[in-house]
Design a protein around this nucleic acid. Sequence first.
DNA 1: TAGATTGTTAATCGATTAACAATC
DNA 2: TAGATTGTTAATCGATTAACAATC
Lengths: 217, 217
Amino acid sequence: MDIKSPLSVSQPTVRRLPLYLRILKQAEDAGKENISSTYIAKELKLESIQVRKDLASMGITGQPGIGFTVKSLIRAIEHFLGWDNPTDAFVVGAGNLGAALAGYEGFGEYNLNIIAAFDIDPAKVGSEISGKKVFHIAKLAEHIQRMHIKIAILTLPSAAAQQITNIMVEAGIKAIWNFTSLKLNVPEDVFVERIDLAASLAVLSNKISIDSEKVSK
Amino acid sequence: MDIKSPLSVSQPTVRRLPLYLRILKQAEDAGKENISSTYIAKELKLESIQVRKDLASMGITGQPGIGFTVKSLIRAIEHFLGWDNPTDAFVVGAGNLGAALAGYEGFGEYNLNIIAAFDIDPAKVGSEISGKKVFHIAKLAEHIQRMHIKIAILTLPSAAAQQITNIMVEAGIKAIWNFTSLKLNVPEDVFVERIDLAASLAVLSNKISIDSEKVSK
DNA sequence: TAGATTGTTAATCGATTAACAATC
DNA sequence: TAGATTGTTAATCGATTAACAATC
């Protein structure tokens, strides 16, 4: 009834939630029952009102004078993100980046399970990267359908990315974590989240070049 | 005199510049002399006024009725980002992610040269990853100083990240591209740009869980 | 009662978008 | 002259921050 529509939570807020989770789990490990927005904010160098606003936008409330219950706050955030249930994903592209992501242990914390990897290189097919089996990319559609996989982690060379994306979408993929430098064309009901290395490097490069100008003045 | 201070350019603007560059280089390859903000915007599904505002904030002006000169716009953006001169960088951590970044050919476009990699694993030291020599991490400070390296690409396990960061800062590193899940503590004059996989995954997961709720209603 | 903390309401800030005269 | 495009000025939008009464 008075549950907030999930759509009203802004992306900046969603991106901060994992930070909150980290602090909350530390608090849980330390045996804390309650935690205040002031404390979370101080740890992350944010404003306490921002933490409260973020939580409020998800429909989470605390107790005046007390704060928030650590355990229930963890549960609420994890549920909001869908991290309270395991999600299976495929890594598509078994190069170094694919191997790095296939073996990234941090994903366990988010309940993201990498089931297998796919590649076109016959030398890789049949082998394992970071403990995950590599299948031929020709089998990708079939596996997506059979296992009802919804998430693909795309680490292919850009040249092949759009073509394989089309195949994955056709097979039923609903979300693509795009590590390529290509902007993918997908239907409306497929969500693409891109790791944009160029954008990130631009920020870094710009800071560096500002600094060096300062010095030369 | 009327040159804009580089500091006044907002981060959202800086992050869009590589997108503009891509369109501009396509136009250059196609032999175009001039290009309009309308055209750039249409290609990227943005508003033309946003493109003009972004360029204006860097002090770049066009010609009414004509648009912008492709070549000079490319030069201006690349100069603003410091991408018109080569920059050397070290990869710190020679795991799969380090190897992926050390061998990433896309960096050539940004004039970012990965000189070498560093790792603590004796089995890796002396070998090559993606064609770059791997040195022992004990040699990191010395190499940073000797080669005046300003940028480090950090792909270590989180546990070691802060300690090595301290060493690098001491040795003179000015910018860290942080691929670990740790928030690094650095002095004010060192800039850290983080690739936050958890934040990105949170956006993806949230979208997925919204969709599955829709279906179940 | 005093201190800590919340949620609400309002203010501020910064980025995006709109409207349009000036220019080629 | 007509059409395309710019830069300027103002409006809108959304996120962050501030102030404070209510609650424990």
